[in-house]
Design a protein around this nucleic acid. Structure first.
Lengths: 340, 340
DNA sequence: TTGTAGGCGTTATCAC
DNA sequence: GTGATAACGCCTACAA
């Protein structure tokens, strides 16, 4: 294994001091053109690269961003991640990813793992368990330590920090309204079994639209499914029991699975049942028929999150005070073939 | 912003030396129980965490793994990533992800970005452009520097390193044979427009199966699509021109899109056209009808890759010699409803 | 039992 | 122009 080349080795080799080498490589005019050229040539030849770790230690910043997300199956999270990664790279930042798997413990462990100076700040979306539990002490601790934190999508009021969300309530409202306008009267809502603030918001919008239209609001029309959707019986029972003509789902996976189930029961989509899902991912596009869905602009969300974080990180260096920001990205309904 | 607490601050506060603190926190018996207790209590109280960066600098290892993948849309890559991340975490490693976007330049830039000591080793799958170009100098440079590298899926003979692949040729063969056994005689092969070694391998298998069955091998039966599949016309034309009764696709996205197109043209699946795709992802599961597919065991691949890399990284510390390994993971065909 | 010193690789400051 | 020194935070061999 070839040994790593450092300033020191160069200095020794060329019989100059380390600081001369350092300056020469920065093309400082303090150093004579001659030595500069000589040192630069040598460095080039041996492919010298400054050690990032040493620089991080010196500058007390890593140029790494920690991203903690609940999963990487749902298209929404991968698209947000993509947005973060793209923007971060243009700014010379790397992205360290941890998956919390919706677990509170893993979220805490992952944060700990990164808290020790590996990153300049976090971008995260809360695990389902964390929201259910309502325990945010690990986040509070991070914020208290002055480590920048940006929350997206699954956020909480309990923490003071930058946040990016979509207008979930309104999107739920608009989607439901769209179903109503299409003639649906018995509209089911499919959401996660575990509490998620985004689900709750979307449910609010759903209720509001129903009430406004004078339709009955009935808890029996809500289907709560486990995250991984193994519970096939539950949904089968639900659709046999309830004679629905419309369905709103908080994500595309549930939407598609429900659509399949309904089709198996002989329902035509959208004639018998109209469907709208959240997240406009590849699944929605490829579904048969293609799914009308609420686009969440994941990439943009990721980009904004990264922007907020990096701005805050760099503002700390200059000791600038910055108020916390909350950006709400407007979701749209993209009409395809599962609505009337 | 609360200031970071370091050994130094603790030492000053308790009026002992830095090394005493260091030892005490390691519970070294060199230090009297009294001081140990006192220091530990203090550290606990102020939530002291050793600075990872400093430790990295000292140990010349970061406990970070760099993962460079062509994209994050295809389920295959996300599942491999998941496998890497999971295993790495159990070993106390973090994962830095870069997306090459199938671009040679981005691949090079991303490698550079990480090459400066940010990571202990790379796990990567080559960008399409890189394979097309056949320029592996950036990889050679990394290997020359003694930085461990594990290649998966999209590998090359040009580089000596650990590798994980699936038996692409055989999988292509088996899948084609399955189609033939189901009665298909005119079998199309759908692959990427750009050269990828995995596509080429799978095509070999496809040819072999056709020949063995005495079916004609005809280049006009091969549909080459751009990565993002914007080229709707091309496939439309292809399916109108060729009267096929079987289709093998090198990934699930192409498979599903072709299936949709065929359905639009009035074909019944699998009665008129049987279909098999590579990658058993959520898209295949959710398709209508569900897609018969070649499972690549992405998570296992990722886990093995991480294992190989970490073993190599840690063997370097002990200066153990290790031969390069190549593991071939056996792909299976998971039969669903698009085959007869 | 505790402390000192040197080093990991870099950079900034100040002295020569 | 060039070099010595200290510092970032931690660890450890060695000295006291």
């Amino acid at each position: 294994m070839k040994k790593k080349i450092t300033l020191k080795t160069i200095a020794k080799e060329l019989d100059v001091s380390v600081s001369t080498v350092s300056k020469a490589l920065k093309n400082s005019r303090e150093i004579s053109l001659d030595t500069r050229k000589k040192i630069q040539a040598f460095a080039q030849l041996y492919n010298y690269r400054p050690n990032n770790i040493a620089i991080s230690l010196k500058n007390r910043r890593t140029k790494n961003i920690g991203v903690i997300i609940p999963d990487i199956i749902h298209h929404f999270f991968t698209s947000v991640f993509r947005g973060i990664e793209k923007y971060a790279n243009t700014k010379g930042y790397n992205v360290i990813v941890c998956i919390s798997d919706e677990s509170f413990d893993k979220e805490v462990i992952n944060m700990e793992l990164l808290a020790n100076g590996s990153i300049d700040g976090y971008i995260m979306s809360l695990a389902g368990e964390t929201q259910k539990k309502g325990d945010y002490s690990h986040l509070i601790s991070v914020v208290d330590q002055g480590i920048p934190l940006v929350l997206f999508d699954r956020v909480t009021d309990q923490i003071q920090c930058d946040k990016i969300t979509i207008n979930d309530e309104e999107a739920g409202y608009m989607a439901t309204k769209k179903l109503i306008e299409g003639g649906s009267k018995n509209i089911a809502l499919v959401m996660n079994e575990n509490y998620l603030n985004v689900d709750a918001q979307r449910a609010h919008g759903y209720y509001r639209a129903l009430q406004e239209a004078g339709l009955k609001v009935d808890d029996s029309m809500i289907l709560r499914l486990p995250y991984q959707f193994e519970d096939e019986e539950k949904s089968e029972w639900f659709f046999k029991e309830n004679d629905i003509d419309g369905l709103l789902s908080v994500n595309e996976v549930f939407a598609i699975r429900c659509m399949k189930r309904l089709q198996q029961l002989g329902k035509r989509i959208p004639e018998d049942v109209a469907i709208i899902g959240f997240t406009n991912g590849i699944l929605s596009q490829m579904a048969n028929p293609p799914l009308t869905s609420v686009t969440q602009y994941g990439q943009r969300m990721g980009k904004t999150a990264a922007q907020f974080l990096i701005e805050r990180v760099e503002s700390q260096l200059e000791d600038t005070q910055m108020p916390y920001r909350t950006e709400v990205i407007q979701a749209d309904i993209l009409e395809r073939e599962t609505t009337r």
